[in-house]
Design a protein around this nucleic acid. Structure first.
Lengths: 202, 202
DNA sequence: CGCTTTCCGAGACTGGAGTTTCGGAACTAC
DNA sequence: GTAGTTCCGAAACTCCAGTCTCGGAAAGCG
């Protein structure tokens, strides 16, 4: 088996990546998701369509990359309480996914994941794993404060907090104001504390 | 202004509705969402394409109607406790949306809602409003049992329970087993009880 | 009866996503 | 140098969702 990491032939021109993303970002802001065409994007970037498809598997992937720069929720801020940390995290998730561009693009990406298991796996390994790790740090902090007597599954906590935000944005298309985010954080924080103090699962 | 509900000319043939839905259901099960074509569906149903588009606004709407027969969560079962009721409801939501057909179709429908505010409004008025009403009945029952000292917003509770199920199915594409549904129900039930007993929101 | 309206199947048509093909250029290995 | 590979822009191409047009049939109204 040859070294599959070997670079042969002409190297990929990295200027094209930026030109394509900038063109896509501009068109998306100007005309909206459904009226962005790959031909127009290629033309504005001064690039062939094949160069785009060599980098991005589909229109949905390209426009997601163009509109959502970074899906990690960073070092989760320490607000001093589990409830406050969850509220801050809900705000971050809402900022990432609730802006006008991401609201158009994210549902298309989810539909694309059905067609492409490779895409689903890639997103799983990047943004889901990253957010889950951030969540584990947050729960560990709550344990050290004494808010959580027993450790909890970070994946479950992640699901419980981000699910409602996600559902409101994309299934209900309800506006989500900060009061609602606070309510969600309050209920989840109280529920996690009670669950951690209560009987073991299973 | 004339009576806009007036029926003039030939009435719509209701046999066609069933033929189209049956053809769509069959093709969906056989070849999967992305390989179902409107031409093939029309041909199998023995029908013109225009007859399909007179009934369903898009491929996503047709296949959603063909795979998700009924989105109400019925008379929510009374299991004797808030936690049990929430677990049962989580199971129902999971059954509706977690079967192989609905898992392919629902994300496409969400992407379609971005393009079509009319579709979004229609779904909002049917399945969201219906589930929210079912949720209100469930919360009222918990109040009468004495589990909830103070009434809670049914929309918030709906979001908190269905959001995690939805997120696991469509964003994470994680398998959701009954243990996870039970965990979700436990945390939400504990959180709602604590929230209802605690300080008023705002 | 005619007149109008809406339905129907069939199929042509448009527009855009995604693929492929072409000639050419850039890089590596020999 | 030469060969082999991968890149590039351009553009032709395939496929399919969604629209439109046709001739005809079925209904209500006069």
């Amino acid at each position: 088996m040859p070294d599959s990491g070997q670079q042969l032939g002409r190297p990929r021109d990295s200027h094209i990546d930026h030109a394509v993303l900038a063109a896509a970002r501009g068109l998306l802001a100007e005309v909206g998701y459904s009226r962005v065409t790959m031909d127009a994007t290629a033309a504005r970037a001064g690039v062939g369509k094949a160069a785009i498809y060599r980098r991005f598997g589909s229109k949905a992937e390209l426009l997601f990359a163009a509109s959502v720069h970074d899906m990690s929720i960073e070092p989760p801020p320490d607000t001093g309480s589990l409830r406050g940390d969850l509220h801050a995290l809900a705000r971050l998730i809402h900022e990432r996914l609730g802006n006008p561009l991401a609201r158009q693009v994210t549902p298309a990406l989810m539909a694309e994941m059905v067609r492409s298991p490779e895409l689903a796996a890639r997103l799983q390994q990047t943004f889901v794993a990253q957010q889950r790790a951030d969540f584990a740090a947050l729960l560990e902090r709550a344990e050290r404060r004494g808010e959580l007597p027993r450790p909890l599954d970070p994946a479950l906590a992640h699901l419980l907090l981000s699910g409602p935000v996600f559902m409101a944005l994309f299934a209900f298309q309800d506006p989500v104001d900060d009061t609602v985010l606070g309510e969600i954080a309050s209920v989840i924080a109280a529920g996690l504390v009670a669950r951690s103090a209560g009987p073991a699962p299973g």
